[in-house]
């Protein structure tokens, strides 16, 4: 019944999209206070995450695996560093409120807005993206669509049911004196690790 993740790539507008839009995507994402790390290889992507983890003093992580993360061996590398890592839904439910970091994969980015698109039907995905103070996503850097209407070309063909969303930078508010303040209910830090190398030679 739930097929978005299985089918969406067939609708990816390859003619108009691709890594040539990455620079624009990166600029917009940074403007929305996202941190962006572009990596040529899976190894670099793993290293980028480990540096983030080190810098933030992470001891506990909740993780939902994406093909890119699996190929980069992210979870094992975290455990090897002594970080507590939880990947099963029941563990995530228990530990997400106190974890230092949530890690997940996203389907594609939108150059116009610097947003990433994530299919989030699984409860585990939504918990890791919203509860910890730092959220890191893995994105194949070729998966950038030019704009919101193009994103909806994909969505319209594949969204029968489920929980889909765009994430654009960290959680924010301007509700007190219109002063932009980061990290209200969701993560105060949002990082995108974009990788040029695809898992198993394909584009995801």
């Amino acid at each position: 019944m739930h097929t978005f993740t299985e089918t969406w790539q067939r609708s990816f507008p390859t003619a108009t999209s691709g890594s040539h839009l990455f620079a624009e995507f990166e600029e917009r994402a940074r403007a929305a206070a996202a941190e962006v790390f572009r990596c040529a290889t899976l190894t670099e992507a793993r290293e980028a995450l480990l540096r983030l983890v080190e810098g933030a003093g992470v001891t506990k992580a909740v993780v939902v695996e994406s093909p890119l993360q699996l190929a980069a061996g992210v979870t094992e590398a975290l455990r090897a560093r002594g970080v507590e890592v939880y990947t099963a839904p029941a563990e995530i439910a228990e530990h997400a409120p106190t974890a230092d970091i949530g890690i997940s994969g996203v389907e594609f980015g939108v150059a116009e807005t610097g947003s990433v698109f994530q299919e989030g039907y699984a409860i585990a995905t939504r918990l890791v993206t919203i509860l910890p103070p730092l959220h890191v996503v893995f994105l194949p850097s070729a998966n950038i669509v030019p704009d919101v209407p193009q994103a909806f070309e994909i969505i319209a063909k594949n969204f029968d049911r489920g929980y889909l969303g765009f994430i654009t930078g960290p959680s924010r508010t301007g509700d007190i004196e219109r002063v932009l303040t980061i990290g209200v209910h969701g993560p105060g830090r949002f990082a995108i690790i974009a990788c040029d190398e695809a898992p198993q030679g394909g584009t995801r």
């Binding site: 917009r28 929305a32 839904p89 029941a90 995530i92 439910a93 939108v110 116009e112 807005t113 610097g114 947003s115 039907y121 699984a122 409860i123 939504r126 918990l127 919101v148 969505i155 969204f159 029968d160 049911r161 489920g162 929980y163 889909l164 969303g165 765009f166 994430i167 654009t168 930078g169 960290p170 959680s171 924010r172 301007g174 969701g186």
Partner: peptide, 20 residues
């Protein structure tokens, strides 16, 4: 509304989803 290109979270929910 807020002079943003997109808000931090733009979400679409169709049908009930799982909860823990």
């Amino acid at each position: 509304a807020t002079c943003q290109l997109m808000t931090s979270y733009t979400t679409m929910v169709s049908g009930p989803t799982p909860a823990m």
